[in-house]
Design a protein around this nucleic acid. Structure first.
Lengths: 163, 163
DNA sequence: GCTTGCCATGCTACTTTGTTACACAAGCCG
DNA sequence: CGGCTTGTGTAACAAAGTAGCATGGCAAGC
């Protein structure tokens, strides 16, 4: 998985190196007049380097070197980054991970959560988007945000078993 | 929404009355050799009559008439009911609601969560199932369970605003 | 009849996850 | 300057979920 198996990703979404992600995040914020402050940068960088999704309290521990950081600070940073579209939250796991796409409005992001290794892969699908929009429209529902998370086993872990 | 706007559902999935749901649940368990015990029945009945999704601690309060019930008991009941396919958990909200469908394996259940009224509608879509399976298969991922939750505004709440 | 084991439930305490309320500092703008 | 907004800090708290162990019912087997 791109975000959790840096050594052997079954596919690649493009540049995922930490530095690239940071540069991109900074440019993204500048372009929108958003402040990519030191705290927010640290949170984002931690997620980018982790190689796997982290919980909010993982970040609390990692960021509070000397004195433990207050959870609320981390949550505020996470909220900003989510709002800015720079990270995603995995609702089924209460974890966060950096975004690897530019998301179009005609696509739905699908998260593949591996129950064995805990890694999360992020895909975009316009097929799914169409299906969801059609389903929602049929009952007059206007979606604002979507959480599409599949739990199962990723190809890497499955190969590991058999072979 | 069927499960949260009993008075004016935009569509109907069939019988949703509490008694019917309870009968169905009981039959469902009997057919599978599962025990629909008093505790499990009470939890299920509470969810069925609530008319909206409930949190685990809502149930703790509602079920503990005299002495407060232990959370773990509720969680065990919820786990059983989920396992049995009788209720669903809404991951983005940490709430639970009774299932209104028989779920086929070729369909994906989609939850429409209204951010205004908190109601949840439950739909099944084979289009979405196809899209998700295709997306997952493309990267060798074998899904075991799916959480598809859209947050937005339901037709009832939207009409209320405009009119 | 008694024991053994399984299942469901109960109890206490605990961890993890997320929030409320308030204070303070920096920058912008009249 | 004084008031405003934005971002961060601190302390306490609420909500959600779990661990570990004890109890009681029931059926199988000696």
């Amino acid at each position: 998985m791109a975000s959790s198996h840096p050594g052997a990703p079954p596919h690649d979404h493009g540049p995922v190196a930490t530095a690239d992600l940071l540069d991109h995040a900074e440019a993204h914020c500048r372009a929108r007049g958003l402040q990519f402050t030191p705290l927010r940068r640290r949170i984002f960088a931690e997620l980018a380097t982790a190689g796997k999704p982290l919980g909010a309290y993982d970040l609390v521990e990692r960021l509070g070197q000397e004195k433990r950081m207050a959870p609320i600070s981390v949550y505020r940073g996470l909220d900003f980054l989510i709002e800015a579209g720079l990270i995603h939250r995995i609702a089924t796991r209460n974890t966060y991970l950096p975004c690897h796409h530019e998301h179009g409005t005609d696509e739905t992001t699908v998260f593949l959560v591996c129950s064995t290794c805990g890694g999360v892969d992020e895909l975009a699908s316009s097929d799914v988007a169409r299906g969801l929009d059609g389903t929602a429209a049929a009952v007059g529902f206007r979606p604002r945000s979507r959480a599409v998370e599949l739990e199962g086993e990723c190809s890497t872990c499955r190969d590991g078993h058999g072979a």
